[in-house]
């Protein structure tokens, strides 16, 4: 794939339109890497002039902060800010709502002021501006959307992902708990990296069961961590053969045959 880095861009004296913040999951997690590649294909199709930080990118520090390690978070934040400010970054897009939230809300106070977009917002904008056209090649699949907490309640963004799903010629069905009432997948607040406390059920099972009640062909997400949790939920409820968990970037890339 052709994925220019900021360093390469700078060497050529170019400034890209937008920085694609890949995030740790998008860089290293096998499932999330597919989302990253799907999004890059969409950026290519829309001829977006973008770059990544590549090996100069480092964890935003979101998980460290929510685990209580403010020191590590701020170290990460200031290191990243130093890099991004040196490249004079103005605009960032990311597929990870946690990075999105941290970059958008917690970096400005530390000197990192950027225009930050979640990839669903960015893609929607590309479509609205006529830079990307979708050909509606899906055929009425039932899709339910799981709201990531850090996109939804944390930043009040409920409609961009839904608008995109609706544009795909599918049947969007809502779970009982949706939008600002949505149930967490169980990964946030650094839970992704530890076992759950003692209880009588895994949160991701509770949420996946709710999704399955809508009888979907696809559970759509907009977060690599939610994706992992819902995929685990599908496995533990033995629905792997009938239900897929896909990111909205993947839905679009698949539908457009990218």
């Amino acid at each position: 794939m052709n994925v220019p880095t900021m360093a390469e861009m700078m060497a050529q004296g170019k400034q890209p339109e937008v920085l694609f913040w890949v995030g740790s999951a998008g860089s290293f997690d096998d499932r999330a890497k597919k989302i990253t590649r799907a999004f890059v294909k969409i950026l290519h199709k829309a001829n977006v002039d973008f770059a990544v930080l590549g090996t100069e990118e480092s964890s935003t520090g979101d998980a460290a902060k929510r685990a209580g390690n403010e020191f590590l978070f701020q170290m990460q934040a200031m290191t990243n800010i130093e890099v991004m400010n040196a490249y004079e970054i103005k605009k960032i897009v990311t597929c990870d709502p946690h990075s999105f939230n941290t970059l958008k809300n917690e970096y400005p106070e530390l000197g990192g002021v950027y225009e930050v977009y979640h990839h669903t917002q960015f893609i929607k904008q590309l479509i609205d501006e006529g830079r990307l056209t979708l050909n509606q090649s899906m055929s009425g699949e039932r899709i339910t959307f799981h709201d990531p907490c850090y996109l939804g309640r944390a930043n009040d963004e409920y409609e961009s992902p839904r608008d995109l799903i609706r544009k795909l010629g599918v049947n969007l069905v809502e779970m009982k708990r949706n939008k600002n009432n949505a149930l967490c997948c169980g990964a946030g607040g650094a839970q992704m990296f530890k076992d759950a406390e003692k209880g009588d059920k895994e949160i991701f099972v509770e949420r996946t069961e709710e999704a399955i009640k809508t009888n979907p062909d696809i559970i759509a997400t907009g977060c690599p961590y939610c994706n992992t949790m819902m995929t685990d939920g599908i496995k533990s409820t033995n629905k792997e053969d009938s239900v897929q968990v896909l990111d909205i970037a993947e839905l679009i890339a698949n539908a457009e045959g990218l």
């Binding site: 794939m1 860089s27 290293f28 997690d29 460290a64 685990a67 390690n69």
Partner: peptide
């Protein structure tokens, strides 16, 4: 969580992957 934080500290990701491999996905 301590392991996760140590990883972030050492290699800039919550997992034990080298920061130099961050672009391998492409």
């Amino acid at each position: 969580l301590n392991m996760m934080m140590t990883n972030i500290e050492n290699n800039g990701a919550p997992w034990q992957y080298s920061q130099m491999d961050r672009l391998n996905w492409k």
